[in-house]
Nucleic acid binder design. Sequence first.
DNA 1: GATGGTTCCTCCAGTCACTGTAGGAGCAAG
DNA 2: CTTGCTCCTACAGTGACTGGAGGAACCATC
Lengths: 140, 140
Amino acid sequence: MRGDLSIGELSRQAGVKATTIRFYEGAGLMPKPPRSEGDRRLYDEGHVRRLSFIRHARELGFEMADVRALLELSDRPEGDCGLADEIAGRHLTAVEAKIAKLTALKGELERMISQCSHGVVADCRVIEALADHAHCGGEH
Amino acid sequence: MRGDLSIGELSRQAGVKATTIRFYEGAGLMPKPPRSEGDRRLYDEGHVRRLSFIRHARELGFEMADVRALLELSDRPEGDCGLADEIAGRHLTAVEAKIAKLTALKGELERMISQCSHGVVADCRVIEALADHAHCGGEH
DNA sequence: GATGGTTCCTCCAGTCACTGTAGGAGCAAG
DNA sequence: CTTGCTCCTACAGTGACTGGAGGAACCATC
């Protein structure tokens, strides 16, 4: 309510680029704010909170559809939170799978690098490790 | 060399969709293969290996530019492998960072879910956890 | 040899979540 | 009044694909 913010100020306060804010407006994540005489967007503290919420959720890897759902839920605080729970749960599963995959990859990269004799490619395990795995074919 | 493969067979053997194979051809990751009378692409075992190499590298999160560099290196086995080593090294750093970030996220998601009272959104910690963090503003 | 089903061809548009650019207008300070 | 910054819209580009249209080719069967 207090002190209108320009898109640049909102950008700095929430840590989201102005172009991205306009993109979020078009995508329906951020509302169309009131405008000044000169047609500039005017934001308030509520917008800072909403945008920071979006940024945080995006950083946590929630996709825009999920963020939209979460925002709709938080806009209707009388609603059932089971959906929010489910979104977070789905996300947790995906995150665990990614961690497992990346941990395996880390081991593989370390092995690759430690075995690389710093010689020619013919002796290089970086290439070979990838090529080796190429033979294992099917399941990921 | 033995037994020509159709794009469909290559697709099945390497676990990469035919459309994606054509896309890789356009992007220069896969070579333009010989064609049949009827203008169909003809692949061999070498293509299966190359495509599997690409698939594996992509699954490990190497971006196309890196895959291209690795492929060029493996195409010239007399070259220096320092570059391959460097690509893998850069990647290892990024992978470690990703794992750290995802592990933090996992903890946060678990906390969110365990605290969700399965009631209305007003009491829901999933939303609140996101909103809470929204206040923490600046650095990510 | 006609038929039908599958696979393949090219070309092009769409996806996601932005990012960047062009070309202009508004605004505040010197 | 001019300089320089921020902001406006509109649109094109990114990466890494994915999907569809519309047509040709191949294969098996009748």
